[in-house]
Amino acid sequence: MMPEASTLAPRIDHLFFALVGLSLVIVLLVGCLVAGFAVRYRRGSKAQRGQLPKWITRDVELGWTAATFFVAIFIFWFAASMQTSEFEIPNNAMEIHVVAKQWMWKLEHADGQREINTLHVPVGVPVRLVMTSQDAIHSFFVPAFRIKQDVLPGRYTETWFQATKPGTYHLFCAEYCGTDHSQMTGGIVVMPPAAFARWSEGAAAQGTLAAQGAVLFRQLGCSGCHGKSARVRAPSLAGLYGTRQPMAGGGFRQVDEEYLHDSIEQPQKDIVAGYTPVMPSYQGIASEGDIIRIIAYLKTLKAGGRQ
């Protein structure tokens, strides 16, 4: 096996080896039976043959049907209980934004640091990855952490990990994405917290993502309508993130990254009740990277006041 470098890895391996053990037992059982029968009942051997009573055939049949069924259900339960407990993303996780494109990974820290094909993270801190793609489907795969998540265009997908061992681990694109799919690789550099803090300071700071987002918010003209002194009837975005809003077509939507992203690219789609769809689409104007910054900025706006 690969090195186990995340909190998840030992649990996955536990399940893996349990299944390997079970498979070995079944392969040995079937193999020994086939081989044993093949030798004992080869043509011309002296072994006894004859009809089996009907009830034996039926009981054996029912017996192994029930047995396999219970084994299958047991493994399902074993795996499913792990799925529910391990794939919940912790609240206090450090956020990394990932934008995939043919054929590179762009990774951005909350403090505004950008990396390409490399990600530096501290040991022992849960890391939440919010990912999107600019073109085809990609997949963020770190074998040492036992995580993999497809990265889709037009929406955000998430995964998380908590590294347990310093070192450099492979990052692969696992969903075939064209010519240089096999070059779309990188490394996750896991550092002790102190070293990470030094690395974090050492990199040139361009201001946090949110600060860059605030600049974009003015540059792209968002503040013209959504700002304080706007004349157009557009909703204030302060304190919006995390709330539930009624929709014009009926129903509610949770305001999350996905919704904000869609509202920038396809503003006609889900309008908050009481507003008219007057906003133009920013598709092709704001890049995925810009949208990530704007969303980071919107998340910092508190209700009632502005930064």
Binding site: R11, I12, L15, F76, A80, Q83, E86, R146, Q149, A174
Partner: peptide, 12 residues
């Protein structure tokens, strides 16, 4: 077929 293992093993 088990989801947590498939996450690691799929596309490999």
């Amino acid at each position: 077929a088990s989801v947590p293992l498939d996450v690691h093993l799929t596309d490999t």
